[in-house]
Amino acid sequence: MTYKLILNGKTLKGETTTEAVDAATAEKVFKQYANDNGVDGEWTYDDATKAFTVTE
Rank of each mutant, 00 (worst) to 15 (best):
M1T: 14
M1Y: 15
T2L: 13
T2I: 14
T2C: 12
T2W: 12
T2Y: 09
T2H: 07
T2K: 11
T2G: 04
Y3A: 02
Y3D: 02
K4L: 10
K4D: 03
K4I: 13
K4A: 05
L5D: 02
L5Y: 02
I6K: 05
I6A: 03
I6W: 06
L7I: 15
L7G: 02
L7C: 08
N8Y: 11
N8K: 11
G9L: 15
G9I: 08
K10V: 13
K10M: 13
T11A: 09
T11S: 12
T11C: 15
T11Y: 14
L12K: 10
L12E: 05
K13H: 10
K13L: 07
K13A: 07
K13C: 13
K13T: 10
G14Y: 14
G14K: 12
G14W: 15
G14A: 12
G14E: 10
E15R: 06
E15L: 11
E15N: 06
E15M: 12
E15P: 04
E15W: 14
T16E: 06
T16Q: 09
T16I: 15
T16Y: 15
T16R: 13
T17F: 14
T17Y: 15
T17G: 04
T18Y: 12
T18D: 02
T18E: 04
T18G: 03
E19R: 14
E19M: 14
E19L: 14
E19Y: 15
E19F: 15
E19K: 13
E19I: 15
A20S: 06
A20H: 03
A20L: 03
V21S: 11
V21L: 12
V21E: 12
V21I: 13
D22T: 05
D22P: 01
A23V: 12
A23G: 04
A23L: 10
A23C: 12
A23Y: 13
A24S: 09
T25A: 14
T25R: 06
T25F: 07
A26L: 01
A26Y: 01
A26G: 02
A26Q: 00
E27P: 00
E27G: 06
E27R: 09
E27A: 10
K28F: 09
K28N: 07
K28Q: 11
K28L: 12
K28R: 13
K28I: 11
K28V: 10
V29L: 11
V29C: 08
V29M: 09
F30A: 00
F30H: 00
K31G: 03
K31F: 06
Q32F: 05
Q32Y: 05
Q32M: 09
Y33S: 01
Y33E: 01
Y33W: 14
Y33Q: 03
A34L: 10
A34K: 01
A34M: 06
A34D: 00
A34C: 15
A34N: 02
N35I: 15
N35M: 15
N35E: 14
N35D: 10
D36W: 07
D36K: 10
D36E: 13
N37I: 14
N37M: 15
N37H: 15
N37A: 13
N37L: 15
G38D: 07
G38R: 06
G38E: 06
G38I: 04
V39M: 08
V39W: 14
V39I: 15
V39L: 11
V39P: 01
D40S: 13
D40L: 12
D40C: 14
D40F: 15
D40R: 14
D40W: 15
D40M: 13
G41T: 01
G41A: 02
G41P: 01
E42F: 13
E42W: 13
E42R: 09
E42Q: 11
W43E: 00
W43K: 00
W43H: 00
W43G: 00
W43F: 04
W43M: 04
W43V: 02
T44M: 09
T44L: 07
T44Y: 10
Y45L: 02
Y45T: 00
Y45W: 04
Y45G: 00
D46G: 02
D46Q: 04
D46K: 03
D47Y: 09
D47S: 12
D47K: 09
D47A: 14
D47P: 15
A48S: 12
T49Y: 07
T49W: 06
T49Q: 11
K50C: 06
K50Q: 10
K50G: 05
K50D: 02
K50N: 07
A51E: 13
A51T: 15
A51S: 15
A51F: 06
F52S: 00
F52P: 00
F52E: 00
F52G: 00
T53Q: 05
T53P: 00
T53N: 04
T53R: 06
V54F: 05
V54S: 01
V54C: 09
T55Y: 08
T55F: 08
T55D: 06
T55G: 04
E56Q: 10
E56Y: 11
E56M: 08
